[in-house]
Amino acid sequence: MRKIILMASAIVSIITIVILLTYSKDDNKIIRIGYFPNVNHAQAILAIENNSFNEALKDEGYKVEYKVFNAGTEAIQSLISRRIDVAYVGPIPTIIGYVRSDGMIKIIAGSASGGSLFIIRDDLPIETPSDLANTRLAAPDYGNTQDISLRSYIIENGLKPKELGGNVEILYVRGSEALILLSKKDIDGAWVAEPWATILLKNTNSRIFLDERDLWPDRRFASALLVVRDDLIENKNVIKKILDVHINTTRWLNAHKDDAIPIIQRHIEDVAKQKLSEDIIKESLSRIEFTSDPILNSIEEFAERAYKLHIFNNIPDITEIYYQVFDTIKVNDGG
């Protein structure tokens, strides 16, 4: 009898453990999405505020959590280390992450095109690229998308950054630091993304030297992408629902930009503790095309530029960086 009781007790314990493990497994069905609380990641902000990802994935048994980043390199590293599963991020960090993770990261959609300006001090006699000799310029981070664009532009116009033996100095500072440095005339210009481009224009004695869109065919290039870790692609229902939310949010945004402004404004203030006026957000949005098109020709061009700037030892093979979720590409973004 004692053995029977002990066996029954053991069976109950095993069942209890199995149940606990089952619930624990369910609790771990979490999709973690990384993004920047910034205007060029507007779809992420709107989807969060509307609870769209959670609503779309609840039937699959998933909850969604969000992770805020301030640099693309950090977001990509979190993808590779499995701390997040999905991210809104720029093309250069995406390419670097894809190459260095042996293809672990995949683009499933575009998110934004444009929204990047080369701002210079208005008191300087800079009218042509050659006038940039002996200047001191700023970019947000070494090896990020704006940095690659700035250094490529300098080299293509017959100049060189100081690290390559030239006379153009490039500092790596955040937008808030660029604002201070430009105001104090400690830098001569900055290649920055929105909303910092508009903030610099409105708060310093500066002007637009170049809108990056003017350097690209049809004025279109990928400035933000929706990327995932490759193992998530195996779950077809989840990946399709994530992409559907992104596409539908993109379409709504393009059709309702004025309605989106206060939502974006409130989210940025709540999450980033940054107060932006509606005018700044509206002007920033006017320079960004929100699109689910990944604009793959620009991804290839960015990869070649990164190679020329010694980010890679060889031209990276990115032929499989894009994963087409649907049988046909849904690029009708409305608006």
Results as ranks from 00 to 15, higher is better:
Leu6Tyr: 11
Ser9Asn: 10
Ala10Ser: 13
Val12Ala: 15
Val12Lys: 05
Val12Gly: 05
Ser13Gln: 13
Tyr23Asp: 11
Asp27Glu: 15
Ile31Val: 13
Ile31Trp: 01
Asn38Cys: 09
Asn38Met: 12
Asn38Thr: 15
Ala42Asn: 01
Glu49Met: 12
Asn50Arg: 13
Asn50Ser: 14
Glu55Tyr: 02
Gly61Glu: 07
Val64Ile: 05
Glu74Asp: 15
Ile76Phe: 06
Arg82His: 13
Ala87Trp: 02
Ile92Thr: 13
Ser101Met: 01
Asp102Tyr: 08
Lys106Asp: 06
Ile108His: 00
Ile108Lys: 01
Asp123Met: 02
Asp123Asn: 11
Leu124Glu: 02
Thr128Arg: 10
Pro129Asp: 08
Ala138His: 05
Asp141Met: 12
Asp141Tyr: 11
Asp141Trp: 09
Thr145Tyr: 04
Ile148Val: 14
Ile154Pro: 09
Ile155Asn: 02
Ile155Lys: 06
Glu156Asn: 15
Asn157Asp: 03
Pro161Glu: 04
Pro161Gln: 05
Leu164Arg: 15
Gly165Pro: 13
Gly165Glu: 12
Val168Gln: 03
Val168Ile: 12
Leu171Asp: 10
Val173Asp: 08
Leu179Thr: 09
Ser183Asn: 14
Gly189Pro: 08
Trp191Gln: 12
Pro195Cys: 08
Trp196Val: 07
Leu201Thr: 07
Leu201Lys: 07
Ser206Pro: 03
Ser206Phe: 02
Ile208Val: 14
Glu212Pro: 00
Trp216Gly: 01
Pro217His: 11
Ile233Gly: 07
Ile233Gln: 06
Asn235Arg: 09
Asn235Asp: 15
Lys240Arg: 14
Leu243Val: 00
Trp252Ala: 00
Trp252Leu: 00
Ala260His: 03
Ile261Gly: 01
Ala272Val: 10
Leu276Gly: 08
Asp279Ile: 09
Leu285Ala: 03
Glu300Cys: 04
Lys308Asn: 12
Asn314Leu: 12
Pro316Cys: 11
Asp317Ile: 06
Ile321Met: 07
Asp327Ala: 09
Gly335His: 02
